[in-house]
Computed example of a mutant assay.
Amino acid sequence: MKHTFDLSSTFQLDKFHLTLGGFYPLEKVKYKYLYYSARVFIHLISWSHLLGMLTFSLVQVSNLAQLADTLTWNMTQIPYLCKLVNFHIQMNTVLKLEAWLRRPSFTWITAEEETAIKSTMRGARILTTIYRSLCVTIVSLFAIFPLIDKNSGEGKKLPLPMWFPFDVQNHYHAVWSYEVFGICISAWANTNLDSLSVMLITLTVCQFRMLTKRLRNVGKGTEDVVRDEVVQKELKECIILYNDITRLVELMETTFSNGIFVQFICGVFVICMTGFRMMVVNLKSIQFFHLLAFFFGQICQILMYCWYGQTLMESSDSISEACYFSDWFKCSNQTQKYFLIIMERSKRPVIMMAGKFFFLHLDTLMAILKSSYSYFAVLQQIYSDK
């Protein structure tokens, strides 16, 4: 027995957090002043952090160690802001995407299909929770490390290398609080954008798996007298669902692909530089554990996109096999042609792209890690020679 299931409930947590920040588009805004004020406030904090670090890079351009340190944090802030701005630009597309998820082909499902969707989404939520926890650890270490670092002879350190038009040591606690607060805001918004993307990709995977199961079971349990009529009706529903899923992927790609592209490009540099800095610091220092957590956080961020992108590709690739394992041989020639059309259409798997350049699958993850290691090996060789 089929019933209506609200798919937006699977990413309600991410939607709620982004709404608090004034970024998730709403058809009706109840508290407009608070909604838009939160958005402007987060933009001001985030952009002022990037501007401060870029200015510091220019001031310290002759100091290679400081420059490398600053560029690492710049390459972390830039993709976050690109994702934030891109999400803001694509607000209308997000509304279209959510409206598309309310189509009957998606929401009119059986109790068994609902259970399968909730189970798959629960697995994705566990991974995003691990990612959030890792980000909390990184932010905590960002805040703690400057307070307990006793090795600096230049006064107290700050969480981030930033330029200020005054003597930082005279206003250390105020500056420290400003930087830590900005890091918390950036990490909070960034993890919610990543989590929303992953949850939507996983939701698409659920729809492909549901379609695969329907195709395998199409026409089963019906009498031979009415088989063709029933099978053709079920096939038409499957075709509508397949077309709706491909349109959903197009909307998701429009919404998130540009931000993911910048994330991948900057991720190569950040992973490389973080690994290099881990090599030159004391293994027993808290800075090493700070860099180690940051290193795994960057890999986990890219891994989530590539892993679920790979799952999406594999789930869409199983459509043709599902048609083959159905009872197509019991149908008329006309109905068999419908199966053949679906199989031909599904020969091209559905793959999400990042900025029309990178496919979201595990091969891209390996390419990023290989590129990062290549640059790391060059830096290591230069460092060893010196």
Score class of each variant (00 low, 15 high):
Lys220Pro: 02
Gln336Leu: 01
Ile45Lys: 06
Thr10Val: 05
Asp244Ser: 11
Thr72Glu: 03
Phe208Trp: 01
Ser257His: 00
Thr212Lys: 15
Gln336Lys: 05
Ile109Phe: 04
Gly297Thr: 12
Ala99Phe: 00
Pro104Met: 13
Val59Ser: 04
Cys206Glu: 01
Cys266Glu: 03
Phe358Arg: 09
Val205Gln: 05
Glu321Met: 07
Phe164Lys: 03
Gly309Arg: 04
Glu223Lys: 08
Glu321Ile: 04
Met91Trp: 10
Gly21Thr: 04
Ile342Thr: 00
Leu97Ser: 04
Phe256His: 05
Ile130Asp: 00
Thr311Arg: 13
Tyr33His: 09
Lys118Met: 07
Thr246Asp: 03
Thr128Gly: 02
Cys238Lys: 10
Ser133Leu: 15
Thr364Ile: 06
Glu154Tyr: 09
Tyr131Lys: 08
Phe288Asn: 02
Tyr131Gly: 01
Leu196Arg: 04
Lys118Thr: 01
Ser326Arg: 12
Lys386Ser: 14
Ala111Gln: 13
Phe106Gly: 02
Leu71Ala: 06
Ile382Cys: 06
Leu241Ser: 00
Val205Tyr: 11
Ser320Gln: 12
His43Tyr: 15
Ile286Glu: 10
Lys83Thr: 03
Gly309Val: 10
Ile89Ser: 08
Tyr33Glu: 09
Met278Val: 08
Lys150Met: 10
Cys266Tyr: 11
Arg209Ser: 10
Gly182Trp: 01
Asn63Phe: 03
Tyr24Ser: 03
Ser257Cys: 06
Ile42Met: 12
Met279Arg: 07
Met279Trp: 12
Ala377Asp: 11
Trp73Ser: 02
Gly219Asp: 13
Phe276Ile: 14
Phe11Val: 05
Phe256Glu: 04
Gln66Ala: 14
Leu18Tyr: 03
